[in-house]
Each structure stands twice: as structure tokens, then as C-alpha cells.
Design a protein around this nucleic acid. Structure first.
Lengths: 137, 137
DNA sequence: CAGGATCCATTACGATACTG
DNA sequence: CAGTATCGTAATGGATCCTG
């Protein structure tokens, strides 16, 4: 997301507190939604195409790279059935499941309070309020 | 972060679930750390320079834009003492404080489990393991 | 089916210099 | 002191085309 990862160079002086590292992973555009679907709608396993269907707007490529990242981080397990064509199944690992707690807490907060944040932004966008509105008749 | 904000165009078709919107804000590089310092080390208010001192590595500019974003979102309040030179104080709003709960839960998870994620990545980096290690003597 | 490879637009971030 | 302005770079994400 914001701190480098592919380059792997340049973050030599970063504090890199753990939460920052974590946000660099789950903060990418589709990750939180992929985890959510895996947690809430995939009791057992789910296939690539089915997962994609449940995430409106995600492209094949983005789902692919998002899943690869999650697999690499050990949050998601990938199982290939060597048929032709292949069938690939994904599920949360125990580690991934353990993340669901804090993550759903954040989701709840967001659902409750994002409207307030939106309102705050709207206020900031409006032209500066007139102190004594004499100009209006 | 990942979904547009300045452009404000192009996200016409995004699902934009609340948690995504939230992560776009708190997921930027310095935001979580600024909130943390405000929550844990600034019982009342804290000034710009003092805040900066508590966040090693942040530049003047990045602290500035991060704070502006937080103020605009209504998570942080800004108070200016009109002296010369000016003294500007920041503190979390109630909304910002209410975010601290979920956020610290995420922090705790990160401190506990990031090492596992790191190990998982190291495993992924190593050359593929030999199935029957006969080549080693 | 489940990706990989390319190309391209936008953005986030950093470094530096300047100001009321 | 607390910013703003400008510039350059790297990286994210989208669209499109190709394949075992």
C-alpha cells in the first residue's frame, strides 16, 4: 500500500510498527473484502470463480494478486485439484480466521461511523459560512 | 490510499463498502501512528512539533497532510492560538477516540501475529524444498 | 478454469526550498 | 512555529490479451 514491498529496499529507516505492516497488507483495495467473503460466505472452501462472483467489480487479475498475497502471508490456504481444467479452492487459515475478530470490529465501526466522517467532509467542502448573513434577502 | 479521493471521479462503480472507505483513510502510511500517539501520549492536547518529535521519521509535510486529512474527517480537532509565531494544538475528537478501540484491537493482533506472517513470507522466499534430500551428504 | 504478461494512468510519498 | 509549494519517483490498480 504505502510502505514498499516489491522493492524491499528503502524502508530501512522506517519505524515499521506492526500495525503499519499489517495495514500495508489488509489495506490494499480488495483484501478486506476477500477476507470478509471467505470468513462469512465460505464455511468450507470456495473456488476462484465463485469468489470472484461474490465480489462485484473485482477483476480477474486483482483477485489473483490479492489471493497470492494472502496465501504468501499465510492468511489463506490454496488447494489445487489437478483436474483439467484445474479447480482451485481457497479458505482462511487459522491465522486468517484469528484476524477476522479485529477486522469485523473495524467493519462494525465503519458501518456505524462512516456517515459521520462523510458529513464532516461535506462540511469541509462547503464554502465558508457567512458570519452575519445580511447579503441574503 | 487505494481508492481515489482527490480525483473524486472514477469510483462511480465501486462497491465502496464502509470498511474500504475507512481503510483508505487510516491505511495511509502515517495515519495509524498519528492516531496512536494522540490517543496514548496526548492526554489533553499536543502541538505540531511535539507530535512530530514523537513520530520518528515523519516529515513536516507528511505530518501536515496526515493531520489535515484527519481534521477533515472529523477524527482530530485543531485549535490555533493566534500568537506569533502561532501555536497549533491537536487532539482526538470523540469520534476519533471511538476509533481507538477497534484500532488498538488491530494493533494487538498485529503485535501478536505479524511474526507468523513474516515467517510465512520467509518460507515462500526460500527455494522449493527437496522432497527427498538425497543430494545433501 | 484459473491464472500470467503487458501497458498505462493515477497516486502516495519523499526531499527540498520557501513563508506569515 | 507551523505550515505551503514544487518536483521527482515508485508503486497501486485497471484494462486488455494470452495460455496450460
Amino acid at each position: 500500500m504505502t510502505t514498499s514491498r516489491p522493492g524491499e529496499r528503502g524502508d530501512l529507516l522506517d519505524p515499521l510498527c506492526p500495525v503499519r505492516q499489517l495495514l500495508d497488507r489488509i489495506g490494499t483495495k480488495w483484501t478486506s473484502m476477500v477476507v470478509k467473503v471467505l470468513a462469512e460466505e465460505a464455511p468450507d472452501e470456495i473456488r476462484f470463480a465463485e469468489l470472484r462472483r461474490r465480489i462485484p467489480g473485482i477483476s480477474q487479475k486483482m483477485l489473483s494478486v490479492t489471493l497470492q498475497s494472502l496465501v504468501r502471508d499465510g492468511l489463506v490456504a490454496r488447494r489445487v485439484e489437478p483436474t483439467v481444467p484445474p479447480a482451485v479452492h481457497y479458505r482462511l487459515t487459522e491465522l486468517g480466521l484469528s484476524l477476522e475478530g479485529p477486522l469485523s470490529a473495524l467493519r462494525d465501526w465503519a458501518e456505524t461511523h462512516m456517515p459521520e466522517i462523510d458529513r464532516s467532509n461535506q462540511l469541509a467542502d462547503e464554502p465558508a459560512p457567512v458570519l452575519s448573513p445580511l447579503g441574503e434577502h
